[in-house]
Amino acid sequence: MLKKLAVIVIALIILATSGYIYINHSVDAYLSQPLTVQQEQIVTIPSGANINRAFSLLNEKGWIKPNFAEKFVRRLHPELVQIKAGTYQLLPNMSLNQAIELFRSGKEHQFAITFVEGSRFSEWREQLTKMPYLTHTIEDKSEQQIAQQLGIEQNKVEGLFLAETYHFTAGESDIDILRRAHQKLMSALDEAWQHRQDGLPLKTPYDALILASIIEKETAIESERERIASVFVNRLNKHMRLQTDPTVIYGMGDAYDGNIRRPDLRKPTPYNTYVIFGLPPTPIAMVGKDSLTAAVTPEQSDYLYFVASGNGGHVFSKTLSEHNRAVRAYLNYLRKHK
Rank of each mutant, 00 (worst) to 15 (best):
N50W: 07
H109V: 09
E117M: 04
P34F: 07
P66Q: 07
S26G: 11
A220H: 09
K130S: 12
Q154S: 13
G313M: 12
N97D: 15
R325P: 08
A192I: 07
P46C: 07
D290P: 11
Y22D: 11
S223K: 12
D174H: 05
A69W: 05
A329M: 15
I175K: 02
G310L: 06
F55K: 02
S230D: 04
L134K: 00
K203E: 15
D28Y: 14
D176Q: 14
L90G: 00
G171A: 07
S142D: 07
E218R: 04
P92V: 09
E153H: 10
A255G: 11
L96V: 07
S119V: 09
E139H: 14
A308D: 07
E126L: 15
L134V: 02
P92R: 09
K184V: 07
K289D: 08
N67E: 13
E216R: 05
L5D: 11
S122T: 15
P92Q: 08
M94E: 11
V116K: 09
A208W: 00
G199T: 06
L90Y: 01
A49P: 05
R325H: 15
H77Q: 14
G312Y: 06
E117C: 05
D198I: 15
P281R: 06
K203L: 12
A229N: 02
Q144D: 14
D245Q: 05
F161V: 00
I83T: 02
Q144C: 13
A326R: 05
V327G: 08
V307Q: 03
Q243F: 05
R75E: 13
I42P: 07
R104K: 12
H314F: 05
R180N: 02
H337P: 08
A326Q: 07
I100F: 06
P246E: 00
L331Y: 12
D174Q: 02
A255R: 14
A294C: 03
Y30G: 00
Y20Q: 08
M1F: 12
T297V: 14
T219K: 01
S47I: 15
L5N: 13
Y333P: 06
T87M: 07
Y274Q: 03
M131P: 10
I215K: 00
S18H: 13
L12N: 10
P263E: 07
V37I: 09
L279C: 02
R180L: 05
N93D: 11
V73W: 00
L58S: 03
